[in-house]
Design a protein around this nucleic acid. Structure first.
Lengths: 349, 349
DNA sequence: CTGTTAGCGCTTTCAA
DNA sequence: TTGAAAGCGCTAACAG
């Protein structure tokens, strides 16, 4: 018998034993040769015989069997809440790093796997992957606290959590500081901040940067100019509308998210305002889309690929049991302002 | 010995054998009980004893071992070229269906796994997943042809390919027919089509719908009004610019992609045109973003969740060896026009 | 340099 | 109703 039927598709599956028989050697030898195990030096002749047989038979190693024997799957997962602007870059960075370290990266959609806890169980505890990258959006505070007692290799992205789980964050504070400065430098003093939800700490960190820039410029921070809402377009529109209803509305606004900025622009338009003549706006995070908005949107480009890359590296260290920092902030490369057309001097100037 | 150290994280792994010992039964019994194997009727008493032991020990089944024994992973993958507007809905639909059928759905980024061929090998042939959903964008014609000889459970999304690989497509023709009709009904006769790349068949099918609507209305189709470019914003802008450079430019344009429409709007704006006064526009595919553009964009919403759902169902049939159609088109629910503000009567009227 | 021998943790006949 | 035993396809000592 040379091969057995495998499930579905009528494919036949060729195993190491088949190749061994064909080549007239033991399967352990085949295993070593095919893996290029450097602790062994097979004769060039046997190597050739084995490779031949493998090709002839169309041998493809079975990842599951290997995983079981090695007790590692060489795959890691990235759990994201829902596809958004920022994840494409994080995925790219993480994917590159993963490949380089010998992992396959898969991404799991949070809404589909249920809450993060389910994902941790299904993916990590049941051993489907060696480790998990948890993107911030998937974590409510409740779940985050829950993570304290969790085992498994996990790295949390962009969220400062209480537990001792390793985490990596982007420099939200500095990014937002830079963005706010951009507005200040353009001459604005009445600058609003469109923050994300109140209990999310990326939101909190961005507020800190906003405040810092204001203080540094000697501008008093006004409570009424700081509004909280969802990070999406609808949230941005709603927040902006509240801002525009103020007795003296802001002349500029810093948005904590790109989608929020898009919503804010729509709100301003609805109210008959022209950007940047009547209102300047800068958005946290960049996307190709920003170039095509009316007007093109000035953004704060965060080093998201680097974030993804370093997240994978942290996870890898954890997997192989190497020591390393428990909490890192990505400072390099620096966030940078991409100047487009949404920032100008205030009208009154 | 009650448990062994597992790789990384210092976790201990509790096995079936551990639970069996703790409960004083054989591991096969534990396996049956914990899986609720209906072919066995364990005493309520032993069941309780086993469950107790499992909980006490914190037993979590190992998916890899199970996969090896059962020769199926209960995991399927969706390979996408790069995150785009349409995939969030496809993922949702596929994820729901997958969960319902007992699969875990993971998504793999094409740019990260290299070409589709690599993904097929890594994921399907090496047995990491039971089957693969291949989103159209990942397939160049060359690779598509290559698929002919491929084994493994695969369903191709949104691409009509030569080989006998099962495929599922959305009704591009009808959708674009509807979109073009929208423009015709508004009074336009000089309607351009911003198609995608020439050799992509979603693009071709959309052209067919566009032509059909035109013919039906007795409008001659002009070669110069049909321009090909990439599906992204840059492609849309470039295509639109070419259209606007025509001796008599169109009064309306149907875009084969949402991103393309965004680019086209930017181009029109750059040329000083107002939408919809000077130019009407309708885009293929919908997204929340459309609501926030200036002006809000009229779109053709395709049943993408349904596409994802049916794709998974097709794949499942293939996996379990059930018969089923080799090529299906999703007709239900129908594509529908979401009227916003980018379509109006032509200026000359 | 290569073969032998145990597993990895689970499912699944086959007996009892 | 439960247990014993084999095996999924591979890796990894340990001999020789």
């Amino acid at each position: 018998m040379v091969a057995k039927r495998a499930r579905g598709g009528g494919r036949v599956s060729v195993t190491l034993a088949d190749v061994a028989r064909e080549a007239g050697v033991d399967q352990s030898t085949v295993s070593r040769v095919l893996r290029d195990d450097h602790r062994t030096k097979a004769t060039e002749e046997t190597r050739a015989r084995i490779r031949d047989a493998a090709v002839r038979l169309g041998y493809v190693p079975n990842a599951t069997a290997r995983s079981l024997a090695m007790r590692r799957t060489s795959t890691i997962a990235l759990l994201i809440p829902q596809m958004g602007f920022i994840y494409t870059d994080i995925i790219k960075g993480a994917g590159d790093a993963a490949r380089q370290l010998g992992y396959v990266l898969v991404v799991a959609d949070g809404s589909e796997l249920g809450r993060a806890k389910d994902a941790i169980r299904t993916l990590v505890l049941e051993g489907r992957v060696d480790g998990l990258l948890l993107a911030s959006g998937t974590l409510t505070d409740e779940v985050a606290d829950d993570l304290v007692g969790t085992f498994g290799n996990i790295v949390v992205l962009n969220r400062q959590i209480a537990s001792r789980i390793p985490r990596i964050i982007e420099d939200d504070e500095h990014g937002m500081y830079l963005g706010t400065r951009e507005l200040i430098d353009a001459g604005h003093r009445r600058i609003a901040f469109l923050a994300g939800p109140k209990d999310v700490d990326t939101s909190r960190r961005r507020i800190v940067g906003y405040r810092k820039a204001l203080k540094e410029a000697g501008i008093p921070v006004s409570r009424s100019l700081l509004v909280h809402d969802e990070f999406d377009e609808a949230g941005g529109r709603a927040g902006m509308l509240r801002l525009l209803a103020l007795a003296t509305p802001p002349t500029a606004v810093a948005a904590a998210s790109l989608a929020g900025a898009v919503g804010a622009m729509a709100a301003a338009r609805d109210k008959g305002l022209t950007i940047p003549d009547d209102l300047s706006i800068v958005a946290f995070h960049d996307s190709p889309l920003a170039d095509y908005l009316a007007p093109a949107l000035t953004t704060i480009a965060m080093p998201l690929r680097e974030l993804g890359k370093q997240a994978v590296e942290m996870l890898h260290r954890q997997i192989v049991g190497e020591a390393g920092p428990q909490a890192v902030t990505v400072h390099d490369p620096e966030p940078r302002i991409i100047r487009r057309a949404s920032v100008g001097p205030p009208r009154s100037l």
